[in-house]
């Protein structure tokens, strides 16, 4: 399984040619080959959510996806979302609510929240907590993150 495979990845709107081991995870390829280090590896077994990326618009674990499986998909990392309105608003609200401390989990949570608000523009607190339950944060106690996501959704709906 060590023969390198040449693949083309569409990441953040740009198609990039990379050579990867077939068993390499998307997370390793994004971080090491493409130097997109916003996503972090907190567990490498799909529990912590720090490596969330959007695959065709949906938040998935980059550590549980093979790079070769992402070849025909549209991959977005936090770097590629940064200028989009949902992410910009989320970041403002995260700042306001103090929704981060060490920041290690934050990119994965922002990516999840982009998916959430796109799928459900008016989420209840219970719905936000349910979505967020797949992401671990050791610093904030989640409370400010929940508040920030609800506020961001509100602003994006024009309800503020």
């Amino acid at each position: 399984m060590s023969d390198l495979q040449a693949i083309r990845l569409n990441v953040n709107g740009v198609t990039r040619a990379v050579s990867v081991e077939p068993s390499a995870s998307l997370a390793d390829v994004l971080r090491q080959e493409l130097r997109l280090t916003a996503l972090h590896l907190g567990c490498e077994h799909g529990v912590c959510g720090a490596c969330n990326v959007l695959l065709n618009g949906r938040a998935v674990r980059a550590c549980l996806t093979l790079a070769v499986q992402a070849e025909e998909a549209e991959v977005k990392t936090l770097e590629g979302l940064s200028a989009e309105q949902i992410a910009v608003t989320l970041k403002e609200c995260f700042r306001k609510f103090r929704a981060l401390q060490c920041g290690f989990c934050t990119p994965g949570i922002l990516v999840l929240a982009v998916d959430l608000i796109a799928a459900n523009p008016d989420p209840s607190e219970e719905e936000v907590r349910d979505w967020l339950s797949g992401n671990l944060c050791r610093c904030t106690g989640y409370q400010p993150i929940v508040g920030a996501i609800i506020e961001a959704a509100k602003r994006l709906r024009g309800a503020v």
Partner: peptide, 19 residues
């Protein structure tokens, strides 16, 4: 989907020769 197999690959609990 790889959601069960990938953790085993990452921790070398499974080392398939072919996927």
């Amino acid at each position: 989907g790889g959601q069960s197999l990938m953790p085993m690959l990452n921790f070398r609990l499974a080392t398939p020769t072919l996927l």
